[in-house]
């Protein structure tokens, strides 16, 4: 089953995000008020180790499970889309206290009203697709 390995990684993600309280609206408020180190510690540790992992992958040409080289496609360039899209997402992140991953973890945790946020997010993605040609990138 191809799907099983992704479900497995998702379960690890769901457990760690909830056990470290990173799915909590309170923690996101605390972060945007600079009143604790917790969220910065999580993101900082993950990014520091992430940089190390990616450098090691590149240096030693580490292959994936199927034997193919691991390639990370560079993110598309575009200052306007990154800053404007990022800012719009930031507004939603601070309002609902969840980025996309934690939305689904919260659903599993038992907060069914988060389903409304997910429906809104799908609608937001649709709106972007609809107006894509008219937006500056």
């Amino acid at each position: 089953m191809k799907a099983l390995k992704f479900i497995f990684v998702g379960i690890i993600f769901g457990i760690v995000m909830s056990k470290s309280e990173a799915i909590s609206w309170y923690r996101i408020q605390e972060m945007f008020r600079f009143q604790a180190f917790h969220m910065y510690g999580i993101i900082g540790t993950a990014v520091t180790l992430g940089i190390l992992i990616v450098q090691l992958i590149k240096k030693f040409n580490i292959k994936d499970y199927a034997g193919n080289p691991i390639v990370i496609a560079p993110k598309e360039k575009g200052f306007v889309r990154a800053i404007a899209g990022g800012t719009i997402f930031g507004l939603g992140w601070a309002l609902t206290g969840a980025c996309p991953g934690p939305l689904f973890v919260n659903l599993g945790y038992g907060f069914l009203t988060v389903g409304i946020v997910i429906i809104g997010a799908v609608g937001g993605a649709w709106l972007y697709g609809y107006f894509q040609d008219k937006l500056p990138h």
């Binding site: 889309r81 719009i88 997402f89 809104g120 609608g123 937001g124 972007y128």
Partner: peptide, 16 residues
């Protein structure tokens, strides 16, 4: 909830 979701969905796709 719905408005926050709209901002998340639109912003993340715009910002990629």
């Amino acid at each position: 909830l719905l408005g926050g979701g709209l901002l998340i969905g639109f912003g993340t796709r715009y910002g990629n």
